[in-house]
Write a protein that binds this DNA or RNA. Structure first.
Lengths: 233, 233
DNA sequence: CGCGCGTGTTCTATATTCGAACACACCGTT
DNA sequence: AACGGTGTGTTCGAATATAGAACACGCGCG
C-alpha cells in the first residue's frame, strides 16, 4: 500500500456521493449533494449522470436521488465464498440456539456485519442487519476480532480495560459483551481466522437465556471450525 | 434523465473496476483488472488506490484485489426504510409458512433481491441471496412486478405467453413460477406498489407444499398491505 | 541466465474535467 | 402579475487532473 501516487479526484468525488447518499437515508436533491461535497453543481451533475448510467443511483418519483438496488448486487460479491460457507452455518446456529446469529469482519477500525440470520421463532430482533458498522473496540464480535491482532494495530490508544477483556477472550476462546452496541442485549462471539482473509468472527445476540455462555461458545466454535475446514482446506 | 452532457470517464472506469471485481468472484491482480478494462496499468493503479482509500476494495494476503466489506455498508443504505418495514414481515411469513421469503425490486430490466429470510431446512439456501439479480421477465417476483408496468415498458419484445401470465397474475393478484430461476422450485409472489418507490414484490419459494397457492398469496398480501400502510401513510 | 509477469514511480502532452454563466420551470408570497 | 427562491439542465473556455509511455525493480521458472 504505497503512498506516493496521488489519488483520483474525480473518482473520489463520485464515491463520496455514494457515501453521502448511504449516510442520509433519505433522497437528496442534486443541490444538496453538491453542497455536501462542496463542488460546483455542474460537477455533481456529471458525476450523478455517470452513477446513473451504471445504475448505482436512481431518481424517485419527485426527481430526488437515491442509492439504486444495483448497489446491493455489487455488495453481493463481497467475500463471496466466505458468505457461501458461513450462511448455512449461521442458519443452523440460529435455529439450534434460537438466537440471531451473524458474521462480522474487520474493515479498518470497524467491524462490519456481512450476513445475519434470525432464528425461526424470532422475538423481533431488529438488530444487526447486514452492512451494520461500528468500532471494532465495542461488542463481542469486535473483541473476538481484536484477539487476532497485536494491540499495536488496534485503533486509538488501547484502554487497559479493553486489553484485559481481549486477553481473557483470547484465553477462553470466546468474547462477550453486554449493553455495548445494542442496549440491554448480550452477545457471545468466537474468532474466525482464515488464511489470506481478513480477521472475522461469528456471534449470536440474546437478551436472557438458560444456556451458559460456554455452551454457546462451544456451538459457535464448531461452526467456525467447519467454515475454516471448508475454506482453508 | 437528459442525455446531452457527457459522462465522466474516470468515474465510469472506477465503477467498472467494482463491477469487474463483483463479477469475478475471485481476487484479481492489477494487471488483470487493467486488461479487462482495457486501460493502461498506471490508470488502473491510480483508480485502485482511490478505491482503496475509500475502503471499497482491499488486498488479500498475496496482494490481489478484492471488494471490501465497506461495499456492504454502502449497500445497507439502499431503500433503507423499505427494508426496515419489510424485513420483520418477511421474517413472520418465513416462520409461519416455513419457506424462504424475500423482497425483490425492479432495477432497469432486472429484478434484484434486496433482502431474504430463510427458515430452517432451507433447500434454496444458496439461491436468492440478497443482491441476486436476474431478468424481470422470469420468476414469480418478476411477473408480480410486471403487473405494475404497461407492457410497453417491458424489456425486449413481450412474448405472448408472458403477456398471458402477467394478465392472469394481475387478475388473481399473485404470480407463480416453476423451474424458472432456480431448477425444480416453485415460487409465489404478490406485487408491492408504493408511492414514489420503484415497483417491488414479496415472494416465497418452496419445493412442494400442502398449502394452496391461494393461501400463500393471501398471507403475502396481508404483509404487503402492512408494509404499504406503514410507508405510504 | 534470460524471460515472463508482477508491482510501484516519474513525467509530459493533451484530453478531460472544472466551474462560471445562461436558460428555464415550478411554487408560494407580496 | 410580477417577484424572489429553489430546483433542473445546458453551454463553453480555461486550466488542471488525467492518461499512458517509459523506467526501475523483485520474483519464480524453464
Amino acid at each position: 500500500m504505497p503512498e506516493g501516487t496521488p489519488a483520483s479526484q474525480t473518482l473520489s468525488r463520485g464515491i463520496r456521493i455514494l457515501e453521502v447518499l448511504a449516510d442520509a437515508r433519505t433522497p437528496l436533491t442534486i443541490d444538496e449533494i453538491a453542497g455536501r461535497l462542496d463542488v460546483h453543481r455542474s460537477v455533481a451533475y456529471r458525476l450523478l449522470r455517470t452513477l446513473e448510467d451504471h445504475r448505482l443511483v436512481g431518481r424517485d418519483a419527485s426527481g430526488a436521488v437515491t442509492l439504486g438496488p444495483r448497489m446491493a448486487a455489487l455488495a453481493a460479491g463481497v467475500a463471496h465464498d466466505l458468505q457461501a460457507e458461513a450462511i448455512p452455518e449461521l442458519t443452523a446456529i440460529a435455529n439450534e440456539l434460537g438466537m440471531t446469529c451473524f458474521l462480522g469482519v474487520l474493515d479498518g477500525d470497524d467491524c462490519i456485519t456481512l450476513a445475519s440470520i434470525e432464528p425461526r421463532h424470532a422475538i423481533a430482533s431488529v438488530a444487526q442487519r447486514p452492512g451494520a458498522r461500528h468500532s471494532v473496540t465495542v461488542g463481542a464480535p469486535g473483541k473476538a476480532i481484536l484477539t487476532q491482532l497485536p494491540a499495536s494495530q488496534w485503533p486509538g490508544e488501547p484502554a487497559a480495560a479493553l486489553r484485559a477483556e481481549v486477553d481473557q477472550a483470547r484465553i477462553r476462546g470466546y468474547a462477550t459483551s453486554h449493553d455495548e452496541v445494542i442496549p440491554t442485549v448480550q452477545s457471545v462471539a468466537v474468532p474466525l481466522v482464515l488464511r489470506g482473509q481478513r480477521p472475522a468472527a461469528i456471534a449470536v445476540v440474546h437478551v436472557a437465556t438458560a444456556l451458559d455462555d460456554v455452551e454457546i461458545a462451544d456451538r459457535l466454535q464448531r461452526s467456525a471450525s467447519a467454515i475454516r475446514d471448508a475454506l482453508d482446506g
